[in-house]
Simulated scan of single mutants.
Amino acid sequence: MGDDDLLATHLQELRRGTVVLACLLLLEQPGYGYALLDLLERRGFAVDANTLYPLLRRLEKQGLLTSEWNTDEARPRKFYRTSAEGTALAGDLSRDWDRLDTALRTLKGES
């Protein structure tokens, strides 16, 4: 495995959980898949559609998101929103992220 492949593998592992947290935070305001993809990318989270849509379905199945169809426009869209359980989990994950960030900064001698 080359250096680029090794880096890509580890970056993917590092980012996997952060995308879950980012979705829970961003979907506190209702949003649909394509707009969420765009918003994630603009906020620094490069996510492929083939990753995002299964993630949204999984989070909904876990009760962390709710969804409803909007059929007011010519093309129906499924809107997602973070549930109360999802909001609570996002808070827990955010606090843990902050602790990890502090710990990593300490390891790097930045504190």
Results as ranks from 00 to 15, higher is better:
Met1Trp: 05
Met1Asp: 13
Gly2Glu: 04
Gly2Asp: 09
Asp3Gly: 06
Asp4Glu: 13
Asp4Gly: 02
Asp4Met: 07
Asp5Tyr: 03
Asp5Gly: 09
Asp5Pro: 01
Asp5Met: 09
Leu6Lys: 14
Leu6Thr: 11
Leu7His: 06
Thr9Ala: 10
Thr9Phe: 08
Thr9Leu: 08
His10Arg: 09
His10Trp: 03
Leu11Ile: 10
Gln12Lys: 15
Glu13Gln: 09
Leu14Cys: 07
Arg15Leu: 08
Arg16His: 13
Gly17Arg: 07
Gly17Gln: 09
Thr18Ala: 11
Thr18Phe: 12
Leu21Met: 05
Ala22Arg: 11
Ala22Trp: 07
Leu25Met: 12
Leu25Ala: 07
Leu25Asp: 09
Leu27Arg: 13
Leu27Ala: 01
Leu27Phe: 03
Glu28Leu: 05
Glu28Trp: 00
Glu28Lys: 05
Gln29Lys: 15
Pro30Asp: 04
Tyr32Arg: 10
Tyr32Leu: 06
Tyr32Asn: 14
Tyr32Phe: 15
Gly33Thr: 06
Leu36Thr: 10
Leu36Phe: 05
Leu39Gln: 07
Glu41Ile: 03
Arg42Val: 14
Arg43Thr: 03
Arg43Tyr: 05
Gly44Ala: 03
Gly44Trp: 04
Val47Asn: 01
Val47Gly: 01
Val47Glu: 04
Asp48Arg: 14
Asn50Arg: 15
Thr51Tyr: 07
Tyr53Gln: 12
Pro54Asn: 05
Pro54Leu: 07
Leu55Gly: 00
Arg57His: 12
Arg57Tyr: 10
Arg58Asp: 09
Leu59Cys: 05
Leu59Ala: 00
Gln62Ile: 11
Gln62Cys: 12
Gly63Pro: 04
Gly63Phe: 04
Leu64Ile: 05
Leu64Glu: 08
Leu64Ser: 08
Leu64Asp: 13
Leu64Gly: 12
Leu64Met: 08
Leu64Arg: 04
Leu65His: 10
Leu65Asn: 08
Thr66Ala: 13
Thr66Ile: 11
Thr66Trp: 09
Thr66Asp: 12
Ser67Thr: 12
Glu68His: 15
Trp69Cys: 08
Trp69Asp: 15
Asn70Arg: 14
Thr71Ser: 14
Glu73Lys: 05
Glu73Ile: 02
Arg75Ser: 08
Lys78Cys: 14
Phe79Cys: 02
Phe79Val: 08
Tyr80Asn: 02
Thr82Trp: 00
Ser83Leu: 11
Ser83Glu: 00
Ala84Glu: 11
Thr87Gly: 14
Ala88Met: 13
Ala88Trp: 10
Leu89Ser: 11
Leu89Lys: 07
Ala90Ile: 05
Gly91Tyr: 06
Ser94Leu: 15
Asp96Ile: 00
Trp97Thr: 11
Asp98Val: 11
Asp98Gly: 06
Arg99Tyr: 06
Arg99Asn: 13
Asp101Pro: 01
Thr102Pro: 01
Thr102Gly: 10
Ala103Leu: 05
Arg105Lys: 12
Arg105His: 03
Thr106Glu: 14
Leu107Asn: 03
Lys108Ala: 09
Gly109Val: 04
Gly109Asp: 00
Gly109Phe: 00
Gly109Gln: 00
Glu110Ser: 00
Glu110Trp: 08
Ser111Tyr: 04
